[in-house]
Amino acid sequence: MKLVENKVALVTGASRGIGRAIALRFAQEGAHVAFTYLSSVEKGEALVAELEQYGIKAKGYRSDASDFQAADALVSQVVADFGTLDVLINNAGITKDGLLMRMSEEQWDTVITVNLKSVFNLTKAAIKTMMRAKTGSIINLTSVVGIRGNAGQANYAASKSGIIGFTKSVALELGSRNIRSNAVAPGFIETEMTDALEAKALDEWKQSIPMKRGGQPEEVADACIFLASDLSRYITGQVLQVDGGMLT
């Protein structure tokens, strides 16, 4: 039996990178996958076709996770389309980097809204179904930056640190309902974003990591599968670092 067979999972921000890898991994392990994207309809349609090759139901939704009403409507539509919601993976996020002395209010507000408020929006909407079913797994993508901070990313670090506090609070509130809430904190993961970095900068990053390499999106997806499956049925309120030992 596959690890999340016949479970319904909702992945936000799944059109590329880590989110896309998570959606594919869940399909491979037998889950029916709903996912969101914000801009590229073509990428969304292509991902649906790729997911369906694993014999599961898949559907993409163009939705803004940072919009409270849109998030509530999204979850209602997913439940209507799939019948239930077992797993929520809050992955949507952005960066607007800059030193604090030069950071604008807009840069701060946008990152906090997209990265942190979206987690509140989707989780609040999803737990209604999970509480009725008395089961569920919420997985929030944070970052090692949310644990140790990073120069030039005060807004991003604050949003990701906030996700950790939110995750632990939800675990305490909903544990008695058999709803688990955990976070995954990726380190340096090789995606389309890192492809734009200079080779020298990439090598310096890798040399600072005990395992001497960057992580792959699929390795983050594997952590999410673990936290969604019954293999982690007695684990809640935790932050799982997928960072090659970066913060060891």
Rank of each mutant, 00 (worst) to 15 (best):
residue 39 S to L: 15
residue 96 K to W: 03
residue 65 A to E: 07
residue 37 Y to L: 08
residue 87 V to T: 06
residue 58 A to F: 13
residue 226 F to P: 12
residue 239 V to A: 01
residue 150 N to R: 11
residue 235 I to Y: 06
residue 209 I to V: 11
residue 233 R to L: 11
residue 85 L to W: 02
residue 68 F to P: 11
residue 23 A to C: 06
residue 121 N to W: 08
residue 187 G to Y: 00
residue 12 T to G: 01
residue 109 D to G: 11
residue 123 T to Q: 10
residue 58 A to H: 02
residue 206 K to T: 15
residue 105 E to V: 15
residue 155 N to C: 08
residue 212 K to M: 11
residue 26 F to A: 10
residue 92 A to M: 04
residue 122 L to P: 13
residue 156 Y to T: 00
residue 111 V to D: 00
residue 190 E to L: 07
residue 181 S to L: 06
residue 218 E to A: 11
residue 91 N to Q: 03
residue 138 I to K: 09
residue 159 S to F: 03
residue 1 M to S: 12
residue 54 Y to T: 14
residue 121 N to D: 05
residue 232 S to V: 00
residue 1 M to I: 13
residue 8 V to K: 02
residue 75 V to M: 14
residue 205 W to G: 13
residue 84 T to F: 11
residue 70 A to C: 12
residue 170 V to W: 12
residue 68 F to T: 13
residue 222 D to Y: 00
residue 47 L to Y: 05
residue 233 R to Q: 08
residue 166 F to M: 14
residue 184 V to R: 04
residue 198 E to A: 11
residue 54 Y to V: 07
residue 52 E to Q: 10
residue 196 A to F: 15
residue 151 A to F: 10
residue 168 K to G: 14
residue 65 A to L: 08
residue 235 I to C: 00
residue 214 G to K: 03
residue 72 D to E: 14
residue 207 Q to A: 13
residue 205 W to A: 08
residue 109 D to H: 05
residue 175 G to F: 03
residue 238 Q to S: 07
residue 220 V to P: 06
residue 192 E to A: 07
residue 42 E to V: 15
residue 23 A to L: 02
residue 16 R to S: 10
residue 150 N to M: 09
residue 70 A to Y: 15
residue 188 F to E: 01
residue 219 E to V: 00
residue 6 N to S: 05
residue 109 D to Y: 05
residue 85 L to Q: 05
residue 225 I to W: 15
residue 72 D to K: 14
residue 151 A to V: 03
residue 140 N to L: 04
residue 214 G to S: 11
residue 47 L to W: 07
residue 210 P to C: 01
residue 32 H to M: 02
residue 136 G to V: 10
residue 52 E to K: 15
residue 106 E to F: 13
residue 110 T to D: 05
residue 238 Q to D: 03
residue 64 D to M: 06
residue 32 H to Y: 12
residue 193 M to T: 06
residue 244 G to W: 03
residue 92 A to G: 02
residue 75 V to W: 06
residue 12 T to C: 01
residue 64 D to Y: 12
residue 244 G to E: 12
residue 121 N to T: 04
residue 14 A to W: 04
residue 179 I to H: 10
residue 235 I to H: 02
residue 5 E to V: 12
residue 237 G to Y: 07
residue 102 R to W: 15
residue 31 A to N: 05
residue 63 S to M: 14
residue 17 G to T: 02
residue 169 S to C: 08
residue 185 A to L: 02
residue 106 E to R: 11
residue 122 L to W: 06
residue 201 A to M: 14
residue 82 F to P: 10
residue 126 A to N: 10
residue 135 T to A: 12
residue 148 R to D: 00
residue 207 Q to N: 08
residue 182 N to P: 15
residue 119 V to T: 06
residue 94 I to M: 07
residue 124 K to T: 03
residue 117 K to D: 01
residue 196 A to G: 14
residue 115 N to P: 01
residue 220 V to C: 01
residue 120 F to S: 04
residue 225 I to M: 05
residue 231 L to K: 07
residue 134 K to H: 12
residue 37 Y to V: 05
residue 29 E to S: 04
residue 184 V to M: 09
residue 196 A to Y: 14
residue 204 E to C: 13
residue 131 M to L: 11
residue 136 G to M: 09
residue 2 K to Q: 11
residue 237 G to P: 00
residue 26 F to C: 03
residue 1 M to E: 08
residue 122 L to N: 07
residue 238 Q to V: 02
residue 157 A to F: 04
